[in-house]
Amino acid sequence: MRPVEDSGGVLAEFTAPLRSGGYGLPPGGAAHAHDHGTNGVSTSVRTAVHNGHEIRIETTYAITIDGKPLQGGLEVLDNGAVHYHGLPQYALPSAIDLCKRVLDYFGTEPPAADELGCLVGEHGENCACPEGEPGHPHSHEGDSHPHSHEDDSHSHETHSHEGHSHSHEGHVHEHGEAHQ
């Protein structure tokens, strides 16, 4: 075995791998993580050999929650249990139960507005740009605001997310390509 010179080091030295983008990364990086689970549709393939015969089972899930595609994909284990990458310690017999867990853990709204996407020009449904910003691809024609007239007594917090549904016509947004 190679002797390891290893002190842990001070902070600058310690973060050197981070500054250079990480060590031990596979060629092609995380592209795989976005290959499946696009638009709520994910496919996994199980194979087995039995008495010399090859079994191949391709399973595709197309999942929406409140009509919106589930972000990230589901995979089927050989024993039939279903796994969601965002909850890395779970595999459940039922995809419905798994979606319930996803809702229990994450809800339906992201934990923040996405100003980081705006910084790299990757505007999306949750971005933080002010409306009508120049060069901004959002269009608000399709916005619906179901409570805007009836519920004036409700707090504005409940309104703000529901009204924030942008239409994406003409806005190309493909994971895995945006940064190359």
Partner: peptide, 10 residues
């Protein structure tokens, strides 16, 4: 360094 990866949010 890691195509397809980024942080989201603030």
């Amino acid at each position: 360094a890691i195509p397809g990866f980024r942080l989201y949010g603030v």
